[in-house]
């Protein structure tokens, strides 16, 4: 019976304390009865024990069947968990970028790209941890999420014009946030290098901040909301056109950028990189404008 003893020891380690002895006694009684039946049919005690235990299955599987909950977050609230997780993480990351943008310049602190990534990853981890913890508490407390109960079908009158592509929008948000940090001198790509810029860059400092900042806030709002509405589509088109106009202004003016570093680095003209980047940005803005325009045209 050592096989059965060892099996039940393994099962006992996985069972909740409440009712554990009772469950083990019942399993033992059943196993012993099966072994007895098999030995009476000619099996050895060892063969009979192995057959009975194999039929019952792995100790983890057996113990799991006695647990009231088989999961940390069940299927009933999982969609809400996923919805909340994505939005809290993106919201926290955006908040971090906004704080960095407004607080760090006043402290005259600059950060590297690596600093931004490591802080963002850390926030992502903490955000995921606390949202998961919250939903595990909801799952195990048996509490219902009240907004499920408060569903009002009449509110669907302000329906979305199209669902939001979460990945695309989150990507836009990240790019815009990082760009704003760089544009405002908080994010420094190389500490020992300075950039000499043509006057157009200084003249467009605040217009660019306004356009990209508005795009950032729009995309943040969209992610928190979860879908496009008609007025957000119009705003997206308007901001994209403002972005394209700004790019045109830069492209038609003298927009030379010169990167100067230490003696080894010398001076590097960045015009080819800047022109390439402006073409990519312009194409992206055109593509996003087309995507925002299509549902409006199809609807009208």
């Amino acid at each position: 019976m050592i096989l059965i003893d060892n099996y039940l020891t393994q099962v006992s380690q996985l069972l909740p304390e409440k009712g554990r002895d009772d469950i083990l006694a019942e399993l033992r009684q059943s196993l012993e009865e099966q072994v007895q039946a098999r030995t009476e049919s000619g099996d050895s005690a060892r063969e009979a024990s192995i057959a009975a235990l194999s039929k019952l299955g792995h100790p983890i599987k057996v113990a799991a069947a006695y647990q009231p909950n088989q999961y940390l977050i069940g299927p009933g609230i999982y969609p809400a968990y996923r919805y909340m997780l994505l939005r809290v993480i993106v919201g926290l990351m955006a908040l971090h970028l906004i704080l960095a943008l407004f607080v760090l310049p006043s402290l005259e602190v600059t950060v590297s790209f690596g600093d931004v990534v490591s802080h963002q990853l850390s926030l992502l981890g903490w955000g995921a941890f606390f949202v998961t913890l919250g939903f595990v508490v909801v799952e195990y407390s048996g509490e219902k999420l009240r907004f499920f109960e408060r569903f009002n079908a009449a509110s669907l009158q302000q329906a979305s014009t199209r669902p939001l592509e979460f990945g695309d929008t989150a990507w836009n948000l990240i790019i815009e946030g990082v760009f704003l940090l760089w544009w405002n001198g908080v994010l420094v790509l190389a500490h020992d290098a300075t950039v000499t810029a043509a006057p157009i860059w200084e003249q467009l400092h605040w217009p660019v901040n306004f356009v990209v900042g508005a795009m950032f806030l729009l995309h943040l709002w969209l992610i928190l909301r979860g879908y496009w509405m008609r007025r957000s589509l119009y705003l997206e088109i308007l901001l994209n056109l403002a972005g394209l106009s700004t790019l045109t202004l830069i492209a038609t003016a003298d927009h030379e950028l010169l990167l100067s570093g230490n003696d080894m680095l010398g001076s590097i003209p960045l015009n080819k990189i800047v022109n390439g980047a402006m073409i990519v940005i312009a194409l992206t803005l055109l593509w996003d404008t087309r995507k925002a325009l299509l549902p409006l045209l199809n609807r009208e």
């Binding site: 469950i23 399993l27 019952l56 299955g57 057996v62 069947a65 006695y66």
Partner: peptide, 8 residues
């Protein structure tokens, strides 16, 4: 019905 299902 296997015991692992029936007893729980």
């Amino acid at each position: 019905i296997d015991e692992g299902t029936l007893y729980p």
